[in-house]
Write a protein that binds this DNA or RNA. Structure first.
Lengths: 198, 198
DNA sequence: TTGCCAAAGTTAGAAGCCCTAACATATGTA
DNA sequence: TACATATGTTAGGGCTTCTAACTTTGGCAA
């Protein structure tokens, strides 16, 4: 990186900074990320970002928002062309969740920290709801319901907490720290089944 | 705070700084915490902490370590004087986990971030293992096993992921963000039962 | 085509952060 | 009582985020 550019103007600095920020967030984590680093990577002065973002947090917000769009795509792809409402499909959706968390831990962390700090930023909340909606639809189908009612909510939620917890334990390296040898896929299949049973 | 002291020496600055740090971590979160703030709270100069800690991270580590001791005590208390290896007791243990996470979210976050950054700090790892050991013992008792074998590990782990995920969703305020009305206790009881079933 | 305005860069610098070096004071022990 | 050591202090370097004022440039109106 640190590409020297010939022109005074960058071309698309906003996009360049978002990408640089995303990479740095994955390398160092959201809390170790610095605006200065992103500027060096994009090859601009440290004042340049403030033409496009109000502050550091807004840069992270942009990465989060864009990342959640990818998250949604990943989750959609996991259920596309599969029999809706089967345990197998629901389990694959869970595995896709874990896959995203472990392949983009920085963005994943950002997605679950940022709404707290931005007090329910509507854009982020809406993206979160769309992602969760994929699971809700599958669980509704599993129980043969035409739409999402209270029972569907009650049965879908623990599935979420399980994959969410597993994702964090994986990216925080608690599994290796406790020397747990686990076959994630087998463990998931068994317990998705258990959580959907009576 | 910002207590002016009469003496040149503080008395027990290390303990004072740990407590100030703990409070600030709860107020602002581990990433927004600053050494300067802790110094102001303890009423000392910004150079004083470096007589007791190598750097900022070591101050957070001290809070984490002390916090995990409290975490262990809370978890122990939750199973003390209860019939070991019953669903009810195992569920109460899960509720204690969630209670700690929601009442001390800063310390809870610290506990699950810090081992990653300190590459398996032995003190933290040992404390984590002791806490997890409480659950393992209960699950072993549930299955009538004399000690913790592979099956116990396989059956205990999903219980952990569920309460861990639920804890994070609660402290990151995802439940309110998604307008989920949930009775946590009922939800927990039902799904602890499901995860322990065949 | 030219002229000018707004967009998007720049440098300079304020205020705050972490941490170190050098200096000051108090405490415990010989 | 003397003094070594522990534990405070102030001063300052080099980093950070962000603002103010200046500069360049692209695009549109006359």
């Amino acid at each position: 990186m640190t590409a020297k550019r010939a022109n005074y103007h960058h071309g698309d600095l906003r996009a360049g900074l978002v990408e640089a920020t995303r990479q740095l967030v994955e390398e160092k984590g959201p809390d170790r990320f610095s605006v200065s680093d992103a500027c060096r990577a994009a090859g601009v002065s440290t004042a340049a970002p403030y033409r496009h973002f109000n502050d550091r947090d807004e840069m992270l917000l942009a990465v989060c928002s864009e990342g959640m769009e990818r998250f949604y795509d990943t989750m959609s792809a996991a259920v596309a062309d599969k029999a809706p409402g089967t345990i197998e499909t629901i389990n694959d959706l869970g595995l896709a969740y874990i896959k995203f968390a472990t392949s983009e831990p920085g963005v994943f962390r950002l997605s679950f920290g940022i709404a707290r700090e931005h007090e329910g930023n509507p854009e982020i909340v809406e993206r979160g709801q769309r992602i969760y909606g994929i699971l809700l639809a599958q669980v509704a189908a599993y129980f043969g319901k035409p739409d999402v009612d209270d029972e569907v909510l009650e049965r879908a939620f623990p599935l979420w907490t399980m994959v969410h917890g597993l994702s964090f334990l994986l990216i925080d390296e608690k599994i290796t720290a406790l020397d747990l040898q686990l076959d994630i896929e087998t463990m998931m299949r068994e317990n998705t089944r258990r959580l959907l049973a009576d």
